[in-house]
Every structure is written in C-alpha cells, then in structure tokens.
Simulated scan of single mutants.
Amino acid sequence: MKVVAFERSVQGTGASRRLRNAGKTPGIIYGGSAEPKLIELDHNALFHALKKEAFHSSILDMEVAGKAEKVLLRDFQMHPFKPMVLHIDFQRVDANAKIHVKVPLHFLNTETAPGVKVGHGIVNHIANELEVSCLPADLPEFIEVDLGALELGQSLHLSDLKLPKGVSAVQHGGEENPAIVSISLPAGEKSAEADAGAAEGDKPAE
C-alpha cells in the first residue's frame, strides 16, 4: 500500500491543533539509521486507510517529499469520542532485519466445521491475531486457520497453524502452545443439559 505524506516543520500542541483544523494529521517516522522525521498526512485519506486490515499489517510505501521508504504502522491515537486521528507513528523497515508484527488470523470453513454443522456448536475465537517474526519480504498479510475438520469440544492450537516459510510465531511467556480457536456448545444449551441431568437424578427410583 502506498501512503503519501508531507514534511512537517513545526511541532507542539498549538501547531498540531492547527493542522487538525486544516484536515491534516501530524505524525512521525522513526527507526533505522536516519533521524526521526516529522510528517503530516491528509486526515480523510488516513482515516479510511485505517479501516483496511492490510494497512495495519503490511509493509507500506511511504512517499515524503518525492522520496519513498518502506515503513510499518506502529501506533495511532484516536480522539476519545470524535472520528478523528490525533497522531500516527510509522517505523522504518530494513530489508535485512527481522521485524515483529501482529498479523490478523483469517478463519476458514467455520460454517462447515463438523462441530458447527453437525454438533451445533459455536466458534470461539481465542485469538484474532498472531505476533510473528520475519524479514519484511516474508511478511504475510494474514494467516489462515482452517476449521474444516474441527469437532465439537475440540480446539486448534498454535502448533496446528501452517505458518508461511520464513515466518515464526513470537510468544511472550504464558502457555507454550496456546489455543487459537475452539468449538463448544452455547452456554444456554450447556445449562439446559445440566438441568435435564439434574432432573433425571431427582426422579425416585422405581
């Protein structure tokens, strides 16, 4: 994805407020061997770009003053109640250095999974994204999670995912092989079954 930005020479609360009033969003590009660069972007174009999944997990082509560089979206701040982007941060990407990025998970065959189609269970998304480590050229836009064989009461774990070549999962403590998605009965049906079981147990012996 291509992003066009402009160099920003002024900074501070007042200057940022004037930019926002003019339909611009202040931002910064940092990282790599170059100095941090203050930038400004068209707010409306940025607001719509932030709605696209790929904008959050892809290497972006950032053009500033006619020069292009590869960057990643690292952070952005929204107004507490207005649909307004207050500030945005991008990090430069080195083609030869591994990056850590959170990549969205795309769940396939949720409707045809045996646990849903036959077992009438519901899919529980325990994780919706996965942090990975890879070279920029190997960064996937998303990772597929196939539920095609998942039965009622079963879970898919991190080790079950097929990661693209050159991509590895990043874990920060916790479980060694955490669950990603599961299929279970809805809570109401569980309690109904429990009540039925209790009722059976309350019947007097013949």
Rank of each mutant, 00 (worst) to 15 (best):
A5V: 06
F6I: 10
R8E: 08
V10A: 15
T13E: 14
G14N: 14
S16W: 04
R18D: 02
N21A: 15
N21C: 05
A22K: 13
A22P: 01
G23H: 10
G23E: 10
K24L: 15
K24I: 01
T25M: 08
T25C: 13
P26A: 11
G27K: 10
I28Q: 08
I29Q: 01
S33M: 06
S33D: 13
P36H: 06
K37T: 14
L38M: 13
L38D: 05
I39L: 07
D42Y: 06
N44Y: 09
N44V: 09
F47T: 01
A49W: 04
A49F: 06
K51A: 13
K52I: 01
E53R: 13
I59L: 11
L60P: 01
D61E: 15
D61M: 05
M62W: 03
M62K: 02
K67N: 10
K67C: 00
V71D: 00
L73Q: 01
F76G: 01
F76W: 12
Q77W: 02
F81V: 12
P83G: 07
M84N: 11
V85C: 14
L86Q: 15
L86W: 00
L86R: 10
H87F: 11
H87T: 06
F90M: 03
R92F: 09
R92N: 11
V93A: 05
A95L: 08
A97D: 04
K98N: 04
H100Q: 14
K102A: 14
V103K: 05
V103A: 03
V103M: 06
L105M: 07
L105W: 03
L105G: 08
H106W: 02
F107V: 07
N109K: 05
T110F: 00
T110I: 10
T110G: 09
T112H: 02
V116K: 02
V118K: 15
V118Q: 12
V118G: 00
H120N: 15
G121D: 08
V123Y: 03
V123N: 06
H125D: 03
H125W: 03
A127E: 09
N128P: 00
E129R: 11
L130F: 12
L130H: 03
C134A: 12
C134F: 09
L135D: 07
P136H: 08
P136T: 14
D138T: 06
L139H: 08
P140R: 13
F142P: 01
I143D: 01
E144P: 00
D146Y: 02
G148M: 06
A149E: 15
L150R: 00
E151Y: 05
Q154N: 14
H157F: 07
L158A: 07
P164W: 12
V170N: 09
G173M: 08
G174K: 10
E176F: 02
N177T: 11
P178A: 08
I180G: 04
I183H: 02
I183L: 06
P186F: 03
P186C: 08
A187S: 10
G188Q: 14
S191H: 07
A192Y: 02
A192L: 14
G197P: 00
A198N: 10
A198R: 14
E200Q: 13
E200R: 14
D202W: 09
E206H: 07
